[in-house]
Amino acid sequence: MKNFFVPLLIALVSFSSFSCKAKVNSPEKIKVGAESMEKYLPKLEGKRVGLVINHTSTVGKTHLLDTLLSRQVNVAKLFAPEHGFRGQADAGAHILNETDAQTGLPIISLYGKNRKPSAEHLSGIDILVFDIQDVGVRFYTYISTLHNIIEAAANNNIPVLVLDRPNPNGHYVAGPVLEEGYESFVGMNKIPVVYGLTIGELAIMINEEKWASKKHCDLEVIPCENYTHASRYDLPIKPSPNLPNAQSIWLYPSICFFEPTKVSVGRGTDLQFQVIGGPDKNLGRYKFTPVDKPGAHNPVNKDILCYGENLSDVDARNMGFDLHYLFNFYKNFEDKANFFTNERFFNLLTGNGWLIEDLKAGKTVAEVESKWQPALEKFKTLRKKYLIYPDFK
């Protein structure tokens, strides 16, 4: 049969194991969980399968759906996260349920009216397979969909099989840990902004800590091979419309905090999450003008000349999570009273209510970072329990 998706770039790469630590063999290509078909196809035999997938769910150059159908797996239903089944919808755009034109399979949107599968949605499903590429940042909502899948599956006694994929930001842990009262779809679990776990490791943590449900989910992870948390992994497919390359993914944790402000993060340009700027000339010498583009309709500062910085050449992977851009832009922004366009959303992104107050009060980045260190160190200890791959040094 024809591929459900147009062949997407180059073959994927991957990791190691759930039950034991992986052997490091750096010259070997990383192999993602979806490519270890001998490990999970027998678990799907005779089962009615629900797939939680999007455009990143590939086995080599072939979409997972095509791969499974070609092997006579009984795929009964599809579930899609934010940005939709094909990964083309704008951030935050609600997506309706639909029917796939090529296969006739129902597609249940988990970023529309419902963000968690209902008992009715799961009716007739024997097992759920989750295979979506994550970027390792708390407010990237694919992990919120994972949380909801674990909860729904636990409450409806349906097993979940996670096909693991590398974390492109898995080489460090940083940022404030989500605090009670600031839970939302951009932060459902008490983890820092950059949590240093693969989506499989995080699934185990969510399940074992009972963050999603008081009941344990019957959860299994198909690990990557040849992956460690020190590995560099450049995604072969952009995970969403405005994270087009490795540089944008590395910068995303640091500059996403600009989203509820009058500073553009490059949506509506060809350097999404690689440039920052606003109408004030004193924000920087680099100039750009956001315009309507696919995946970025009506972007911040649309059709307005912005002044700021081009970060496309900074060493973002080694820089890690850095609040200096946010603090410097706020300091230099002339109309500080109107810098934020949605303070509540900013607090949900940071996971607390004090960072914004410290920023306004003129506190330094070092002072702010010191406040989140105790909770961060506690999380780092918890994280060690759930690592299934060798850690970074």
Rank of each mutant, 00 (worst) to 15 (best):
residue 9 L to T: 13
residue 12 L to Y: 08
residue 21 K to V: 10
residue 27 P to D: 02
residue 33 G to W: 00
residue 33 G to Y: 00
residue 34 A to Q: 02
residue 38 E to C: 05
residue 40 Y to F: 15
residue 41 L to M: 10
residue 46 G to M: 05
residue 47 K to P: 08
residue 62 T to R: 10
residue 67 T to Y: 15
residue 69 L to C: 05
residue 71 R to N: 14
residue 75 V to D: 09
residue 77 K to R: 15
residue 80 A to R: 06
residue 82 E to F: 12
residue 87 G to W: 06
residue 89 A to K: 15
residue 89 A to D: 13
residue 91 A to P: 04
residue 92 G to I: 11
residue 93 A to E: 15
residue 94 H to A: 15
residue 103 T to S: 08
residue 103 T to V: 03
residue 108 I to Q: 01
residue 108 I to L: 03
residue 110 L to T: 07
residue 115 R to E: 14
residue 124 G to Y: 01
residue 129 V to P: 00
residue 130 F to L: 05
residue 131 D to S: 01
residue 135 V to P: 00
residue 143 I to G: 02
residue 145 T to S: 11
residue 151 E to Y: 12
residue 154 A to E: 02
residue 161 L to H: 05
residue 163 L to G: 07
residue 170 G to D: 01
residue 174 A to F: 08
residue 186 V to G: 06
residue 205 M to F: 09
residue 208 E to Y: 12
residue 212 A to K: 01
residue 214 K to T: 13
residue 216 H to W: 09
residue 219 L to C: 09
residue 220 E to C: 09
residue 222 I to F: 11
residue 236 P to E: 07
residue 237 I to C: 10
residue 238 K to N: 14
residue 242 N to K: 08
residue 245 N to F: 07
residue 254 S to E: 09
residue 259 E to K: 04
residue 261 T to H: 08
residue 264 S to L: 02
residue 268 G to L: 07
residue 269 T to Q: 00
residue 277 G to M: 02
residue 280 D to T: 06
residue 282 N to V: 09
residue 284 G to E: 11
residue 288 F to K: 00
residue 303 D to A: 06
residue 308 G to L: 00
residue 317 R to F: 02
residue 317 R to V: 01
residue 319 M to D: 08
residue 324 H to S: 15
residue 325 Y to N: 10
residue 331 K to D: 09
residue 333 F to P: 01
residue 334 E to F: 13
residue 335 D to W: 05
residue 356 I to Q: 06
residue 360 K to C: 11
residue 377 E to V: 10
residue 389 Y to L: 09
residue 391 D to I: 07
residue 392 F to P: 03
